[in-house]
Amino acid sequence: MMSFLKVFFPSWNFFNTYNDLPTLEFKIPNTNSWQKVFSPPQRTFWFWFINPRVNYLHAVNNHLLLWLQELQVDPPNHGEALLQNSHFKIAKKMAEQELRIKNISMPYELRLVLISVLDKSKNVILEFPVSM
């Protein structure tokens, strides 16, 4: 409850520094190219007022950052632990929903990567298959 009340005393730390970018990528089996699950949206006039898509993408990014923090402290020690992890379930669902919109059907492979903003190098954090 106390952590919940933090919202009344915000830290107001905005853009204080840069972060490497947590990104979900997918790959169709027997292909070599990994692609981003979420494609960048385009700016429109309405984004000044109503912008659910971009707010959702920010929420996805926040979720992946929280998951990364958890993985650094408590990495899963076996496959079942990962499957039962709430962060994992949400991230998997995010990818499934997005790829369904793009008409990409299962099975595919998913991975969580951290992309460096300095040199664009990728650090693969987790890789997992998604099937029916």
Binding site: F15, T17, Y18, N19, L21, F38, P40, P41, Q42, R43, V54, L57, H58, N61, V117, L118
Partner: peptide
Amino acid sequence: LIIQSSPYPY
């Protein structure tokens, strides 16, 4: 570096 975290194209 910060601007690269935008969801919009960079």
